[in-house]
Design a protein around this nucleic acid. Sequence first.
DNA 1: CTGAAAGCGCTTACAG
DNA 2: CTGAAAGCGCTTACAG
Lengths: 329, 329
Amino acid sequence: MVTINDIAKRAGVSRTTVSRVINNSGYVSEASKRRIMTAIEETGYVPSEQAKSLRLKRTKVIGVILPKISTETSSRVVDGINSELNSNGYQILLASSDLSMEREIEHLKLLQSRRVDGIILVATNREQPLLNAIHQAEVPVVVLGQDIKGNSSVLYDDYHAAKAVMNAIFAKGHKKIGFIGVHEQDQAVGVERKQAYLDAMAESGVTIEEGWMQEAIFDIDSGATATKQMMQSLVKPTAIFAVTDRLAIGAMQYLQANGLKIPEDIAIIGIGASDLSKYVTPSLSTVDYFHEEAGILSARLLLNNLQNGEKKVEKSLMRYRLIERNSLV
Amino acid sequence: MVTINDIAKRAGVSRTTVSRVINNSGYVSEASKRRIMTAIEETGYVPSEQAKSLRLKRTKVIGVILPKISTETSSRVVDGINSELNSNGYQILLASSDLSMEREIEHLKLLQSRRVDGIILVATNREQPLLNAIHQAEVPVVVLGQDIKGNSSVLYDDYHAAKAVMNAIFAKGHKKIGFIGVHEQDQAVGVERKQAYLDAMAESGVTIEEGWMQEAIFDIDSGATATKQMMQSLVKPTAIFAVTDRLAIGAMQYLQANGLKIPEDIAIIGIGASDLSKYVTPSLSTVDYFHEEAGILSARLLLNNLQNGEKKVEKSLMRYRLIERNSLV
DNA sequence: CTGAAAGCGCTTACAG
DNA sequence: CTGAAAGCGCTTACAG
């Protein structure tokens, strides 16, 4: 691979001068500049960002840790991050934690060993070891999706979004409302959304019957299974709030397979505004979380941190939007 | 940030010795090793992969160029690439070409300036400038999705997959078959799949009526528009082959909105086995391209190249699988 | 078992 | 306008 020394030799100057024209800084005679330019052309020389990074102590690379790569949410978030980063000359080094906290921590270290300038962590939990790893990080970390004390985060407004969902259901006259949630280890999805359900029910003075609250994992089949359980309750719900679209779609699948009509017999609503939600039949009412925007915002927060040098802690709350479609009437 | 020199000083040895214990190579006395280990623990020292890379002339980073980040195909491919790469100690530097050839070329250079060890390019065209950029690359490039002469590629068997689609349609007794394609700049999707349609029709001796062949771009609405055009033909087709699932779903939307029953009035089939295809109503017949596997294969091809040092040109043809569902009966 | 020295490819005061 | 020198954080012959 051709280096700055090769160019210097070819052009008959020192590498200092070559460096000057590459970065056009300082004075260089037209003659030298011309010779250097042609040398670069002829050899196809591309300066090593890597060597430059070592010298300048910044890589222009941001590490992004995702819970899972091939998920709609992730790809939208990354899309947002990438566009914001790119227009500022940064690139993304990608890592997947596969939903394991150990791997989140591992990647936090791995990325630092690569000397990324900063890290965006799309987190799924707030366990102590993870918190420690975040606080010990030597580069700014922006956490997306979980509120980490003492650290910058971009947050979805899970509680109020879920409250909005409940209000929409109540507005249609439903009282008997079932809930499909996930494990409480996930603060945002597992705890906040559930709390909103509980509060909304309490505020409306309706008691939650046995079997109405189910816990699932993040996939469609699990949504179906949970619904099956729920429909064995003595008092059957007339509406179901599933904490994710996929869970909601699983519910729809199970109900339709068992001859129930949606929304006539039972209404469904999810959260996420997935592509899927738009094209299932009936179309699924849901909440848009603006994932791409969240990605952009995370990147921007990180870049601010980088540019100001200060480690300012900022919390940013995302907006959300209820999308009323045909699964809830 | 703490460096190898800090550790050396703390442990009262030379940095050579520290390097030895980090990489456990060569002899080090137990005493020195112990002192070095505690120094590392106490400081939280993490060796700089970056500096190491400069010295070793390899970064253990692979560049991945995608036509678009937030697409189901992309995320599945990246998932495959990532898992294969990760288990070999490599990481992904991500880039998006946003479907523009200029940006494909730009990123090819940008990634090289970062001294990635190799590049996986998910390509959408085979224009000359791109070919040049690929051939001029100083690191191995594996191209996914387009057959590039003189370069390793992982290829989808577009022609035969599309032929299989046509056979499936014929098998149901259809003769009047419409086609929704894309621009020929895309060799794989635009040319190969169309050729299969043309050949299949010719081989069956059925003439293609005016209006049966439509060209769209890669989104759902465009599929609907194309279908609208098609349905204005004098002789209406009884089945439609759309070259992607999204196009097929657009067709379904338009047809259903206009009171037609699928598959009774008109059958539909796509390609891609998207998540969507499974959950629309009726479920969409399609072809699974095993994108994740394609990602794994691309990564493996690249790693082989890297390990053997030789620049062997290998073409790998992906398998495919027809999935018959309810949109075609 | 250990360390001094050279070098990976750059940039940047400093001196001229 | 230009270049020699130092240094970013590592590894690896080489010598002892």
